[in-house]
Computed example of a mutant assay.
Amino acid sequence: MAIRRNDEQNASPRRPTGSGLLGPVTGFARAFGRTAAGMTLDLASGAARLGEATVDTLVGRHRAPGVLRVQVLILRDESGTPLCSADAVRPSLENAGRILQQHAGLRVRVVGVRTVSEIPPPEALDPRANRGLMIDDMLGHTAFYRRHLGAEVNDGVDPGLVAAPITVVVVRNIAGNTTGCSLGISADWVITQSTLYDAANPHSYDETVLAHELGHALNLPHHSDHANLMFPVSSPPQNVRGMALTRWQRAVLQTNRHVVPGRSGDPVDLG
């Protein structure tokens, strides 16, 4: 049985296209700018949440769970066939919702699950992972994902801003024996392999990977405990990672810029 890993191994790098250093330098500057902006927004969001929690404690108010918006983009293969159905992804979305509700006090609001009509280029359909994906992002090979992030999402929030949804892109294959990958703070999207959602194949079906990658997108690093959601390796069907989160992981999730804070008030009013 092949062991499936996410965020662990890398394929050999693709060679940059184009001439000269202008493209890579521009890409690096763009990626650095996104990372700096994300870090600034996360710090500001964390400070705001800390202030709100302090006031709530002083006046004896409670706060409703925060909300994380998530959308899913399903790609097509070269023949135009969707890589999976919307119904196939829903169990993983529901599992992510249960994990974040139980262990982080957050509600997941799915703002859309749709199939992209445009045929993706090879580098989008079969992307690399980890450092390879980071390099490809700098070289512009992830432009297809970014171009479709805000399409048809009617929540009034543009990608890259506070409270923007995190987009889960379903791709065909991720290089390096990897089933999911996130660029962390520098991106509002993650990639997951379509075989994860094939319930008929117990050796690839894994409902934890989507939630795991959302954790990375919300700034959670890997964790050494196999029972933790952020354990780096998950090998279905017999060695699937756990779903637990620690107190510090909960705090990181609740203060992330993507999370819309819950209403504050009397417990009776909040329901």
Rank of each mutant, 00 (worst) to 15 (best):
A44Q: 10
G132Y: 01
R98V: 04
G51Y: 03
T115N: 07
V89F: 00
I135D: 14
R69A: 10
L50N: 10
L75C: 10
V153S: 04
L125M: 01
A44D: 04
M134C: 07
A124L: 12
I119G: 01
V67D: 02
R109H: 10
R76V: 08
P120K: 03
A88Q: 11
P65Q: 13
V72C: 09
P122Y: 03
G60S: 06
A86K: 02
D77V: 03
D77P: 05
L41S: 05
V153L: 06
C84G: 12
D155M: 08
N95F: 09
V55D: 13
H141S: 03
L149I: 04
L43T: 05
G38R: 00
A96G: 01
M138N: 00
L149W: 00
R90S: 08
E94I: 03
V108M: 15
A64I: 02
G105F: 05
T57N: 12
A53H: 12
A124Y: 14
N95E: 11
A48H: 13
A64R: 12
G60V: 09
A37P: 10
I74V: 15
P121K: 03
A143C: 13
V72L: 15
E78C: 06
S92F: 01
I119N: 01
E78N: 15
L125C: 05
G105K: 02
E94L: 10
R147Q: 11
L75S: 11
A88F: 02
R146C: 06
R128G: 14
P121R: 12
C84A: 14
E52C: 13
V67M: 07
E152N: 13
A48I: 05
D155A: 13
V67N: 04
R76K: 12
L68P: 02
R128Q: 13
E78P: 09
A47K: 11
L43F: 09
L41N: 08
P127C: 07
I74N: 00
Q102H: 09
R131E: 07
T142G: 05
R131A: 12
G46I: 14
R61C: 07
A86F: 06
V153R: 09
H141N: 13
R109K: 09
V55G: 03
L68S: 03
G132V: 00
V70W: 00
I135T: 14
G51T: 09
L50Y: 07
M134D: 09
E123M: 12
T40L: 10
V67T: 14
L139F: 15
D87M: 04
R76H: 08
